[in-house]
Amino acid sequence: MSASGGGDLAARQAELVATLVAGGPLPPGFAPGPVDAARRALLRKRAGDVARHWPLLAAALGGSWSATFARWAADRPTNGSLRDGWDLARELHRRGELPPLGAEELAAREAATRYDGATAPRPRRLPALARVGGTVAVQFAGRVRLVRPAHR
């Protein structure tokens, strides 16, 4: 360990983490190609895990799922796969790019669970109705039912 001490090392490690997960610049001395390969590999792993939490969203996007997720996630460190998929689904809905299956999955989640976009989602205690575009889901006593499917 150099005389400059652990504080310097910690700061350099934080810089590297920002490069890998938050779109930060490449710190001096690192090989650009290999670091970028690691960054992309981490995005692929995240995409796979988010797909397990949001199977209909991922299936609806099919072959473009990995690239769609990677574009969205490249400068966003993870908040956990449930929230990452939720945030992405809402973003796609805002852009008018959420496929029908994804809209139905999002509506079902919104009806069952309260998520403010900033803290951990919590189950809703009261009956609720959620709309995502033309898709409507209702929740009563924890059971969710899609009352109007997405327009296809």
């Binding site: 001395g29 690192f30 090989a31 290999p34 670091v35 690691a38």
Partner: peptide
Amino acid sequence: AALFDWPD
């Protein structure tokens, strides 16, 4: 499995 090494 590491794709890159710490430079120094």
